[in-house]
Amino acid sequence: MELQTYLLLSAVTFIIGVVGVLARRNAIIVFMSIELMLNSVNLTLVAFSAYLGDVTGQMLVFFVMTVAAAEAAIGLAIIIALFRNKQTVNLDDINILKW
């Protein structure tokens, strides 16, 4: 297996995540797409770590996962607070800060 194959797989899923963030209007699905993008970057890090024989990449994945867990907790709390105030998770309706 070549390193290139892993990089291509990671690139394709990252783009799927980008499309999800840009095109979907449901806040929870946008949030899940962000997790998908984080995961595809993790795949790149682990692939390089294994191919270069350096453990630093896997350490970085460990920390990325911690940040992702914290981000999920905070993000979902924000979504709950938004839903409580606006009764919707449609991102087009949540536009108070929009100029």
């Binding site: 290139q4 291509l8 690139a11 990252f14 294994a50 191919y51």
Partner: peptide, 24 residues
């Protein structure tokens, strides 16, 4: 991204199985 990974690749490292088993 596809252009970079497919056409512009320089000498990519190959998998050293023993080393990668060791670090994982």
């Amino acid at each position: 991204l596809l252009y970079i990974f497919v056409y512009r690749k320089t000498d990519l490292p190959t998998l050293n199985a023993e080393r990668s088993i060791e670090i994982g």
